[in-house]
């Protein structure tokens, strides 16, 4: 059953999102072409259209990332609490399956949108000095970590991003689940619930960091021990933050999921 849900959710979202990706692709290629022409001609003649194109692309990328997020939330609301709820809840599928499928597919698209941004930037930056410098900096940071654990670091980074996205999205879902308890103005109630939950989470996270800042475990070994080198201490800092936020995110993700599931299965209140 869940496999079928995945299939339908992917199909429906892909059919809505592909327009945006097509536009981004077109803009990127167009900008790059202008860029290449300008590099070869070495004149300032093409600067205005190039810059406009870049600006458009930038706006487009922002829209892509933003809209993906917004759509995920709106879809969840519509499917679980709004107009499509009747259909959703008559399918012989458990509530937790609905939530997991939607969460996974949404996280997938959000991450894809992020990757597309990075790819776009790389395409544009190819052949320019700025890109080379950024890449150098990144590889320095990574090589400051003991070689055998570099992969671990990268994995940790990726997982952090995934869980961070998932838990923040899950908080929206939970707010929607809380909002539907109200008989009127479910959407406004959801928004209010979101603000409330956000505040609670911020307080919680701040307290947590204050309490543990002195006792963060190091899980990676550094070549030269704790050094004063910028890249080393940078890596250590990033590592510890990632670890802690990762754990906190997982905790929140699970908690929000359980609350949402409980609300939508036991205390469902569809108009």
């Amino acid at each position: 059953m869940m496999g079928k849900l995945f299939k339908y959710e992917f199909k429906n979202t892909a059919s809505k999102y592909w327009y945006m990706y097509a536009i981004i692709l077109a803009l990127t290629l167009f900008t790059k072409i202008l860029d290449i022409i300008q590099m070869n001609l070495n004149s300032r003649f093409l600067n205005p259209p190039l810059y406009i194109s870049m600006a458009l692309l930038f706006i487009g990328l922002c829209f892509l990332v933003l809209l993906t997020r917004v759509f995920s939330i709106i879809r969840f609301y519509r499917d679980m609490v709004g107009n499509q709820a009747y259909l959703t809840y008559t399918l012989p599928v458990e509530v937790w399956q609905h939530i997991i499928v939607r969460l996974t597919v949404s996280v997938f698209w959000i991450i894809i949108s992020g990757i597309v941004c990075i790819i776009s930037v790389f395409i544009l930056g190819a052949g320019h000095d700025l890109l080379r410098e950024i890449l150098n900096g990144l590889s320095s940071m990574i090589s400051s970590i003991k070689t055998t654990q570099q992969v671990l670091f990268i994995i940790q980074l990726i997982l952090s991003i995934i869980f961070n996205t998932a838990s923040s999205l899950m908080m929206f879902y939970m707010a929607i689940a809380i909002g539907q308890l109200f008989n009127r103005n479910k959407a406004i109630a959801a928004a209010g619930a979101y603000v409330g939950c956000n505040m609670i989470m911020e307080v919680f996270t701040t307290l947590l960091f204050l309490l543990t800042s002195n006792r963060i475990p190091w899980i990676l070994d550094y070549k030269d021990g704790f050094s004063t080198d910028f890249f080393n201490s940078g890596a250590e800092f990033v590592n510890s933050v990632l670890l802690l936020t990762g754990l906190v995110n997982i905790f929140f993700l699970v908690t929000f999921f359980l609350i949402t599931e409980r609300l939508l299965s036991r205390r469902l209140n569809i108009e």
């Binding site: 709820a85 009747y86 809840y89 008559t90 036991r266 205390r267 469902l268 209140n269 569809i270």
Partner: peptide, 9 residues
Amino acid sequence: IKLINGLLT
């Protein structure tokens, strides 16, 4: 009807 269908508890 909603109770039968699980749309309300």
